[in-house]
Design a binder for these strands. Sequence first.
DNA 1: GACAGTGTGTACTGAGTGGTACACACTACA
DNA 2: TGTAGTGTGTACCACTCAGTACACACTGTC
Lengths: 118, 118
Amino acid sequence: MARDFGTYVRRRREALQATRDDCSVRQVAQRIGVEPSYLSKVERGETPPPSEARIVALAQELDEDPDVLLALAGKVSSDLQAVIRRRPELFATLIRELKRLPDHAVLRLVREVRDGHW
Amino acid sequence: MARDFGTYVRRRREALQATRDDCSVRQVAQRIGVEPSYLSKVERGETPPPSEARIVALAQELDEDPDVLLALAGKVSSDLQAVIRRRPELFATLIRELKRLPDHAVLRLVREVRDGHW
DNA sequence: GACAGTGTGTACTGAGTGGTACACACTACA
DNA sequence: TGTAGTGTGTACCACTCAGTACACACTGTC
């Protein structure tokens, strides 16, 4: 799972590098505020994924969904966790129920909620 | 927040101790597999809350909701996190939408889902 | 052949996590 | 007066996290 994160990032970065030529390990590393060798090791899965803040910065840099990247890193965004912690019983049961539902059902639910049916 | 966890646990444990007399620091500590001095420090908020596994064991021991206790400790159950990580975009948007809804609305949603309307 | 830019190997680190081990002081009670 | 049980203070520890610092080898190019 940590390995997935690395290869995913590498692929995405190299794709961008091919078109924009400003996404070398060094350049991206500098923009997200880490050492190049560290980013290199992360991409090769030799070291575990970075902190949430770096991952979010990386997602922005690679034009990716932060939540997806965090998920690949085995993490869940801390703001989502805060929402759950505020009403633990409620959200715990809801999420455990939703676990068994197929994507399209959850998606329908999301839309309903967003459209203000609740 | 870590302090809350401690005082909450202490209150609950002392209440049980008063009625059942088998919930001293030593006894509970032994049953959840930690040193008494450690549990003592946790209860006084002198050291941060224990690991998820210990907290769940503690919840069972104190007859409390594990998710609530975890929330007091500033954590979210790892199985819930796993559910979210499996479909990050979907759950992220859903949870962020639900954040602004009042309890009763979320509760209604939980019931609907549980009753198989989805 | 100097130079810039590429990725990478090696060594190290300061702070935090999640506790253990053991001694101590106090109270109850037989 | 011993002894059993109560909570706590002190000292310590292995491990992980989240990286830094710097040197190295290779490639293109001027």
